[in-house]
């Protein structure tokens, strides 16, 4: 694509100083998201996905902070902004959706109040106009009888409906970028697909750039156009979803695929990746994935894993898998 990406993250590194040394939950991450594109960010719990999302929207909890790299929102250096300037961008140019719709909404304010408040904050409209837009926003996310429900409190909605309200809130001031952090994890399986379908529709209709954070490869397969696989704060693999899912280059991606039941692959034996992701304070020498990797060689245990840039830009691995498949496809 030739147009400038809505979000461009360059060499982003986040550090948390602790008593036992400096932790690096996000280490040298780079990726772009274009308008109308859903970019999946996947990895096991603790990989640094939420931390990446929070860094982008400028909501890192101190003492965590961005120590280097850039976050460019259509060219605006968000990482340099502070205080009011940053606040004004939130909601207006970038929105965020959280995991648990039970706790994301203020229980003592009606959904209409919460929507109007957000609209009035960012758009130069009257009270009546804000109310109209609030109703339209609820309609757009598929809340039936939106006009009547505008005065309802969050507890009067079911979980799935509440997540729709959350999405309406994130989108009501028409941001260009939405970060959805595990938007379906807390929902019933039957509702998950509906919410994913809604996100896809909004992304397509509005041309919003979506950063879809999840630990679920199934969600990625369903929704994402491109995917970034994270492991221990670093980018393990980055590429178009179909290629990454069918021809994983990084052994970690391959492991994630083998442990996920995917409808498209029919019944297959599931296999968990042995061991657990190391804690940030106790990363192994060499490539962080090497102790769990079936293909690890001496080099992997001695040298730190390569950065994505040093490799083919696709998998941060000394010995990537499935490279032959790519050559064949080219030939």
């Amino acid at each position: 694509m030739t147009d400038t990406p809505v979000l461009s993250v360059r060499d982003l590194t986040v550090e948390i100083p602790t008593r036992h040394g400096v932790l690096r939950p996000v280490d040298d991450m780079s990726f772009d998201i274009h308008a109308g594109e859903i970019m999946g960010v996947v990895g096991e719990s603790g990989a640094g996905k939420s931390m990446t999302g929070n860094a982008v929207i400028g909501l890192l909890d101190p003492p965590a902070r961005i120590v280097s790299g850039e976050v460019l929102l259509s060219g605006t250096p968000v990482h340099k902004l502070k205080g009011d300037a940053l606040r004004r961008l939130r909601g207006k140019r970038m929105g965020m959706i959280f995991q648990d719709p039970q706790t994301s909404l203020n229980p003592l304010l009606t959904v209409g109040d919460q929507l109007s408040e957000t609209i009035l904050e960012h758009l130069n409209v009257t009270q009546q106009e804000a109310r109209k837009r609030a109703i339209a926003a609820l309609e757009e996310v598929g809340i039936p009888a939106a006009r009547q429900r505008i005065g309802s409190y969050p507890h009067e909605f079911s979980g799935g409906m509440r997540q729709r309200v959350v999405i309406a809130l994130a989108l009501c001031a028409e941001p260009d970028l939405v970060i959805a952090d595990e938007p379906t994890t807390a929902l019933d399986v039957s509702v998950q697909a509906q919410i994913i379908a809604l996100l896809k529709r909004l992304c397509r209709d509005r041309g919003v750039a979506v950063m879809l954070v999840t630990h679920d490869m199934g969600v990625i397969a369903e929704a994402a156009d491109r995917v970034a696989v994270m492991y221990a704060g670093r980018m393990a693999e980055l590429g178009p979803v179909r290629e990454v899912l069918t021809n994983a280059r990084h052994p970690y991606t391959a492991g994630l695929m083998e442990s996920t039941p995917l409808a498209s692959q029919g019944r297959k034996r599931l296999r968990q990746i042995p061991g657990a992701m190391p804690r940030l304070g106790a990363l192994p020498g060499g490539c962080a994935f090497s102790p769990r990797c079936d293909y690890a060689q001496d080099r992997c245990r001695q040298e730190p894993g390569p950065t994505l840039k040093r490799c083919d830009g696709r998998a941060a691995c000394w010995f990537p898998l499935n490279t032959a498949a790519k050559e064949e496809a080219k030939a």
Partner: peptide, 20 residues
């Protein structure tokens, strides 16, 4: 979470403290 979400929507600190 709802305070965090309010921040993510760009609600002013004053409103977050006294309204939410």
């Amino acid at each position: 979470d709802y305070i965090r979400f309010a921040r993510a929507r760009g609600i002013r600190e004053k409103s977050i403290n006294f309204r939410h």
